[in-house]
Design a protein around this nucleic acid. Structure first.
Lengths: 114, 114
DNA sequence: AACCGTCACTATATTTTTTATAGTGCTATG
DNA sequence: CATAGCACTATAAAAAATATAGTGACGGTT
């Protein structure tokens, strides 16, 4: 019955992407699959609690896959699914905007891991 | 001397866009100039304190212009500058992704004003 | 002319979110 | 055999966002 007349995919997408570290995590994963701590570093320093909750969320939405390789010692690999990889367009748009507007941006000094 | 070897425009851009309400505010302004309360509504319900601080920030970065039309009663107009309007590419990318992945998104029910 | 709503905010207190820190049990490396 | 790394979780503290109320003047209703 009450269909999603008031359901706006873009709003939901913005809601998701505006969460702290979300964009950074996705950008890091676009460079390749990563382990938990590795991802924390290459995202620019996301703390473990937040990272864990973001990854749960992304996994729940089917944007990230989690693979446990060995149980002891724990070894986990996070990777983007095709749906997640499609976010590259968004990251690229941000990248391009950033390049074209360096002048406008502040220097908060926040560099992503090598 | 110490040049911005460690200054990454994309990181700064992501830092900015991930702030709560930022994307929503920009999307609303892309539809046309708005007054303060009007913007609060069409952004989807941003609270005045946060909205004021985001607008200050955007104005400071030269992405939004603030024009005071009359002092009493106060009448203010916020609009995107050319640099701000360039963010349309980002919003569009999110829009497209959202459309293509409705299935993945949650239904948080959060609709922007008419 | 008294009343209500609107404008653009600010101040305050409360709630939510993010954060740093420490710690888990195990193994590979030095 | 001490150290560092793995993937996290728990906890408490700090930071950010929020609801709410209020400012003072105007425009529109009654």
């Amino acid at each position: 019955m009450d269909a999603d007349v008031d359901f706006c995919p873009m709003c939901e997408a913005m809601q998701l992407l505006q969460e702290k570290w979300m964009l950074h995590i996705i950008r890091a994963l676009l460079e390749g699959p990563r382990g938990f701590n590795e991802l924390s570093r290459s995202s620019g320093g996301c703390n473990p609690a937040t990272l864990a909750q973001r990854l749960d969320q992304l996994e729940g939405l089917g944007l990230v896959s989690k693979t446990v390789l060995s149980v002891m010692p724990p070894r986990t690999i996070y990777d983007l699914t095709p749906a997640g990889r499609d976010l590259r367009a968004v990251i690229d748009a941000i990248h391009q905007w950033g390049q074209g507007h360096r002048a406008n941006l502040p220097r908060t000094v926040q560099l992503h891991g090598k």
